[in-house]
């Protein structure tokens, strides 16, 4: 494990105190009631989305998204030429960097990317690649940086939507917008857009039950083309449940699309009116 020499990382042995408090999370897991969610949503209801673009003036395109308490900022920078190590590339490239802010999760994160963040960066890249016209900027690379300010669940889905809106805002040629949503599965319950506590519940399997579905699915799609651009599943789920869950996610992704479109149109109209 390479150590960051430039920063003082603090003692490595420190642990969040939450693991010693029984009343906080552990008791929650036992008595969690799936007919009533903590934020008064129904199981198939998503959190409200707030989306704004052009918030980072230095960047070519940027977006800020809020889904409940999950807050994500994304900025996209001008294309730059690829270093000439592998010869000329006929296709452009997208480089993504996904990072949780050090204070965004219950446990403090260090400044270097950990394995989870590296994995999310790769997923983000594969999500965006089918949507961007890579042949339009050969031998150039577009950088996409995503920072999660506050992680209250479904942060990967929020990051994907922020990144796709930021790319559109930057004027990068695209085939369509990418929308994403997450579903948590626990037994017979499908929890749309789970919060971080719900995610933790869906990730654990109850004792003594082997034939039990649990897990989290994140699905990104291009709703304007009816295509799936990325699936990310973790847990232990049978095929029929996956099929049903992905159907729900595809429908949700279609519903979200107008939100992104309206946000982009509104911003452009505003710019246009100001110029007049």
């Amino acid at each position: 494990m390479p150590v960051d020499q430039r920063r003082i990382n603090g003692p490595e042995v420190s642990v969040p105190y939450h693991i010693y408090s029984d009343f906080d999370e552990k008791s929650d897991k036992v008595k969690h009631d799936f007919s009533k969610r903590s934020d008064k949503r129904t199981n198939s209801e998503m959190r409200k989305i707030f989306l704004k673009i052009g918030i980072v003036s230095q960047a070519k395109g940027s977006a800020y998204i809020e889904m409940g308490n999950t807050k994500v900022v994304c900025s996209v920078f001008d294309p730059r030429e690829l270093s000439n190590k592998n010869g000329y590339c006929t296709q452009g490239e997208i480089y993504c960097e996904f990072k949780f802010a050090p204070f965004s999760c219950q446990k403090r994160k260090i400044h270097q990317q950990n394995a989870e963040e590296k994995q999310y960066s790769l997923i983000l890249q594969r999500t965006l690649e089918p949507a961007v016209c890579l042949h339009e900027f050969p031998n150039f690379q577009v950088d996409v940086y995503v920072m999660v300010l506050d992680n209250a669940g479904s942060s990967l889905a929020a990051a994907i939507m922020a990144a796709s809106t930021a790319l559109a805002n930057a004027g990068v040629p695209m085939f369509g917008l990418v929308t994403a949503s997450t579903i948590g599965i626990y037994g017979n319950h499908y929890l749309m857009d789970p919060t971080d506590t719900e995610e933790a519940i869906c990730n654990t399997q109850p004792d003594k039950e082997d034939d039990f579905n649990h897990g989290i699915i994140t699905l990104a799609s291009l709703p304007q083309h009816n295509q799936i651009s990325e699936v990310f599943l973790i847990g232990s789920i049978d095929t029929n449940t996956i099929k049903q869950a992905t159907e729900m996610l595809t429908a949700a992704n279609k519903d979200i699309c107008p939100v992104l479109q309206q946000c982009l149109v509104k911003t452009i109209m505003k710019l246009h009116n100001e110029k007049k």
């Binding site: 997923i123 594969r126 690649e129 089918p130 949507a131 890579l134 897990g215 699915i217 799609s221 291009l222 083309h225 009816n226 295509q227 799936i228 651009s229 990325e230 699936v231 990310f232 599943l233 973790i234 847990g235 232990s236 789920i237 049978d238 095929t239 996956i242 992905t246 159907e247 595809t250």
Partner: peptide, 14 residues
Amino acid sequence: ISSVVKLGYGSIQF
């Protein structure tokens, strides 16, 4: 099924 992930730069139909 304990994990699913899509690889590659293309997209697929549902």
